[in-house]
Design a protein around this nucleic acid. Structure first.
Lengths: 354, 354
DNA sequence: TTGCGTATTTGGATCGATCCAATTAGCTTG
DNA sequence: CAAGCTAATTGGATCGATCCAAATACGCAA
């Protein structure tokens, strides 16, 4: 209460490069070279400088460096729904790669709101990030990519894209994944298959829908049973009744993702029905709970963490070489057959655990 | 191939404050004042400057500002397992509050590795963050907090703490939560209750364990049935057999968190047993899948997002006033009774959905 | 000894903002 | 009308690093 708050002036005691230089008996410039690992400086000098840095507790001031140099070793990561475990896993993958390269990421949850996304991008520019990884929010204006170009801000799109022509992208082959599911359902004897879920328009929806259409046509089946609904358990459950009480009720429901599929299964149960017996149900993503539900959910596994890693690698490459050829990395997905599609399985005791 | 790459020099075309000043016909200093919303500048001038900024597409260079001013409007967020949906939700909460205040967060996944945590903290210092939110990795050396003090780096601990004496903290009342569960189990007639799960030592484990001990003693029951195991579904499942084949087998298992509880239920099933009938099982966290399992899991709901918001609010307050009194925010938890503890419930059709 | 190439080190200018003391403009008021 | 006051604006120094051209040291051949 009586102590003067003078001593708390922020940052007044920070060691600078000049002080390190004084302590080591060399010039500022030499210390700077050591800092950046230049081969120009003699081994003996380097050691002396490093000792001085350690002795004084020197902390590199990246902000000061940024003012003169071009790079900040910093990127922005914009995801559309951070609370979705899938994106959390992706973020962890990004972090894996960045950590190894000495980069750090600003995180932002755009919550599917383009204006929030826009605000965050401006903020990233103010902070001078070297680039961004972007999962574009639904409704993102189409000129965003050109604006990023004009800003000279390297960008890797992930999971979704506004346009991937001539641009870096890391994602999953949604279309092939959905086609595999259709093929599997058809092989089990289904011909009336519904595509369920997905409300917002973006490339990830378009790709899955295209996969559905393509596979159904390939098998000569009707491809017009498409029910759009929000990606929540609740709406998945609500769709059950609607689905079964139409003139030509489907015998299988291929859901946009696991969340909707799990909801649909609950909805069936509430009607006294059972997935896999009364209606084949499949999901997409292979979230942990998919293995856990009863019946366990047939779904498509996508490796979120790996996608994050690839996206980060692509961005670092793009930052290092802005002129290089664009790359698209499309990871395969994998069909995981469980009980919800009614396929014969061997034993309920051999469930996969995490 | 033949075009000169000269035009791609990064950042050579960035508009500076001086150029804005020229365009608006005022001095650098005035523009700077406008930028910081100073009341000193006349309304007419302010508008002229703002128009100039808009016309030229000026982007504030926070790095340059940081060099002179104290603040970066930047914080670090260190979580111990980002892939856990709980932490993802927390991160989203932090982002909510920061976004509103114009701050951004660096994210890092320490993956429970103290050395990774340390590396990241150094990096944060280099980037001159105004403060950090820390969920300390298990095994963090106890002097970390004092070092943070010495560095004058404001820190809010969240979910776990090394020490909360005289320090800011935002978390959940784990102890009370566990006690509520014990009370509930006892009210259902259980007296042999096991505490299952948790391998690493940190405050979040200690608090839950203390809650177990306290409540069991209060009821005059034996408190020595404690099984430690990693927090995965698999180890939860593996524990089932061990649990039931001991001399005085428990009739209830209070699990460290939902993941272990869900695993344990699968383990029971593999033995031909059923949670809620052969063994009461409870969890902690109320992750989405808890409502979804069969039987649905009795658990304790903690509001991750809200904790993130509170942690961010605390940190912003601390940054604004480094000398202010420390605050501890302990959010209550809420018992959610479902079927896995064998309590009578009304109908299986009234399941909560997300 | 001189000249020259290579290896190492250095000082001054610079990046783009903020801080601060000083200046100018515009009004009152005695 | 000069003095005094407030409101608004300004230029120079500064933060802590990097860049770059120039200086220095050293070894070796002519």
């Amino acid at each position: 209460m009586a102590q003067p708050p003078d001593s708390s002036k922020p940052g007044n005691d920070r060691i600078t490069l000049t002080e390190v230089a004084g302590h080591a008996g060399v010039s500022r410039s030499t210390v700077s070279l050591v800092l950046r690992g230049s081969p120009l400086v003699a081994a003996e000098t380097r050691e002396r400088v490093q000792a001085a840095m350690a002795a004084l507790g020197y902390i590199y001031n990246r902000g000061a460096a940024t003012l003169r140099a071009a790079r900040t070793q910093t990127i922005g990561l914009l995801v559309c729904e951070l609370n979705n475990p899938f994106y959390a896993e992706l973020t962890a993958g990004v972090d894996d790669v960045l950590d190894a390269e000495g980069f750090v990421a600003f995180i932002a949850n755009t919550a599917e709101q383009p204006e929030r996304q826009e605000r965050f991008l401006q903020r990233m520019r103010e902070h001078n990030v070297d680039g961004v990884i972007l999962c574009p929010a639904a409704g993102t204006p189409y000129d965003l990519l050109e604006r990023l170009d004009r800003w000279r801000l390297p960008c890797v799109q992930s999971l979704r894209f506004l346009s991937d022509r001539g641009r870096d992208y890391a994602g999953v082959d949604y279309q092939a994944g959905v086609e595999t599911v259709v093929d599997h359902l058809v092989s089990l004897g289904h011909s009336r298959i519904a595509f369920v879920g997905g409300m917002l328009d973006h490339s990830a929806y378009a790709a899955r829908h295209a996969g559905f259409i393509a596979a159904m046509r390939r098998h000569g089946l009707a491809d017009d049973l498409v029910l759009r609904c929000p990606l929540t358990r609740r709406s998945g459950a609500e769709v059950a009744d609607d689905l079964l009480h139409r003139p030509q009720a489907p015998t299988a429901a291929l859901c946009y993702n696991d969340v909707v599929a799990l909801g649909l299964m609950l909805g069936l149960e509430a009607l006294g029905l059972r997935a896999g017996r009364d209606l084949a149900v499949t999901g997409f993503d292979d979230v942990p709970e998919a293995a856990l539900s009863r019946p366990a959910l047939t779904t498509v596994a996508t490796s979120a963490r790996q996608i994050g890693q690839e996206a980060a690698r692509l961005l670092l490459r793009r930052i290092a070489d802005p002129q290089g050829p664009p790359e698209r990395i499309i990871l395969p997905s994998r069909l995981v057959v469980r009980q919800s599609c009614g396929a014969p399985t061997h034993s309920t005791h051999h469930r996969d655990l995490s």
